[in-house]
Amino acid sequence: MGNSSSSNRISAQDKAILDMKNQRDKLRQYQKRITVLTDREKQIAKECLTKGQTDKAKLALRRKKYQESQLSKMDAQLAQLEQLTGDVEFALVQKDVLYGLQQGTSVLKEIHREMGGIENVEKLLADNEEARAYQEEISELLANKMSNQDEDEVEDELEALEAEVNGVPALPNAPVAQPQFTPEEKAQIAKDRAARRARERAAEQASQPMLA
């Protein structure tokens, strides 16, 4: 039902592997058959012995021996076949790995080709360096355009900010009581006042004639 002609994904290797595996299955089946046979021969030998037919029993045992030797030979063949199958399958895997490596390498090469070789990369890096230097120059120029006034304002703001952050420095407390004066001090204050008034009057009289 399944062996249609569309064997597009089946390679010749697959077919070879299948042949080998089929061979292996056949060997296994044969082994099964032989095992059944040896069991039967043993049974026969037992039956013959109970009947006293020693010769027949011997014959059966001989056949059993022969079959057993075949069985061990077949074991060796089976191992060989399985090893070969394993080798072929592993070789196929290796082939796949190689193919993968090839693909990867060619893709890598293609990408390198698109990048245009070492010279191009070097040139590009140099260009990049140049452009960055130019940009730095521009930034510097722009930074120096600040006027003095702007600088002052900036500093003022900085100070204000600093004051805000650090808080106002500690101030002396305001006096709570009226100042107490000694009699000498009171006399001194009264003298000061009198002197001041005299000065003011003198200044007034001096300005009057100039007006007249």
Partner: peptide
Amino acid sequence: AQIFGGEGSEGVKFF
């Protein structure tokens, strides 16, 4: 899967 091989000795390959 795909079945291939001769009658009575088919093999199958899974994808």
